[in-house]
């Protein structure tokens, strides 16, 4: 399994990367962590003629709270999320997600930006970022722009960025008081993509759900929010029945494909279970639990 030949560029600055991308528009692919792209190239499912390796752009590796959000540089390693104190303490949904992405070795190469930009519904970050109502920052020849996560995923492996743009940052709003989040993933074995997974971020007002967003993993062609499930929660006093209703709504609105991980009915029902378990955990955390 040997990749096809290509020309390789290793820009030392974002501007150099953007200029290379513009120069080779349509022929070039960005190499971030490469943990999806390189296997695809080894199978010759991807045969880019030009690779622009942005791993030397260390300026794009950071995790820090800035104003009202957590800013994550696109080239931040997944592994860094696991270790970051701010993620552990204040972004449990993100931490839950980071520790179940692929395996520990892959997480030493894979990047947050790459995981999102790949727009693979099987990846774990899209659902999480949908639940967080994150914002994607993209830079291109015309400058920098922000894209709400709800507008970012436009198709299977397709995103809202132009061919000449590079994803530079992800911004997660700081959770308000009484917020909680959780990611529950059911996988065939460690390192696998999810059979189904649910990312839940919610805010309580007393016993009532004041706000909730739910993202789902690997049960649709395009990374999706479970808006029906959210609707079952918001404004309701939390109870087993409400949680069950949210799970049932998610099962109905997701759109999984049958494969070796299971049939459609199975995946829908697992989605119900994952959504319920994530809600329960998110509620517990919103109430101050771990």
């Amino acid at each position: 399994m040997i990749p096809g030949a290509f020309d390789y560029h290793s820009p030392r600055s974002l501007d150099e990367a953007l200029s290379l991308l513009q120069q080779h528009a349509g022929d070039a692919k960005i190499l971030a962590g490469g943990q999806s792209l390189i296997p695809a190239m080894r199978f010759r499912l991807a045969m880019p003629s030009i690779l622009i390796d942005i791993n030397r752009l260390d300026d794009l590796r950071y995790i820090e709270e800035r104003g009202d959000h957590l800013a994550i540089g696109a080239m931040t390693l997944e592994h860094s999320l696991e270790d970051a104190a701010v993620v552990r303490s204040s972004y449990p949904l993100l931490h839950d997600t980071a520790v179940v992405i692929a395996d520990p070795l892959v997480r030493n190469m894979a990047t947050v930006g790459g995981n999102i930009a790949h727009a693979d519904p099987a990846n774990d970050h899209p659902g999480t970022m949908l639940a967080y109502d994150a914002t994607v920052v993209a830079k291109g020849p015309k400058g920098e722009r922000t894209i709400p996560i709800d507008d970012f995923f436009t198709g299977l492996f397709e995103n809202a960025m132009g061919e000449d743009e590079i994803l530079t940052e992800i911004r997660i709003p700081k959770p308000a008081a009484n917020s909680g989040g959780a990611y529950t993933k059911f996988e065939r074995k460690v390192g696998d993509y999810a059979i189904s997974a649910a990312a839940v971020q919610l805010r309580l007002d007393g016993g009532t759900v004041a706000a909730a967003r739910i993202g789902l993993t690997n049960v649709s062609a395009v990374p999706m929010r479970a808006k029906g499930a959210e609707a079952e929660l918001v404004g309701k006093s939390i109870s087993d029945a409400v949680i069950e209703a949210a799970g049932t709504a998610a099962a109905a609105e997701c759109d999984p494909s049958p494969d070796l991980r299971g049939g459609v009915d199975y995946k829908r029902d697992i989605t119900r279970v994952m959504v319920k378990r994530s809600i329960q955990q998110a509620v517990a955390r919103a109430k101050g639990g771990k």
Partner: peptide, 15 residues
């Protein structure tokens, strides 16, 4: 899991 799930659901057992 899908095989066990089916056996459970066929028997009316759920979570």
């Amino acid at each position: 899991p899908p095989k066990v799930w089916k056996a459970l659901r066929d028997a009316g057992v759920t979570d």
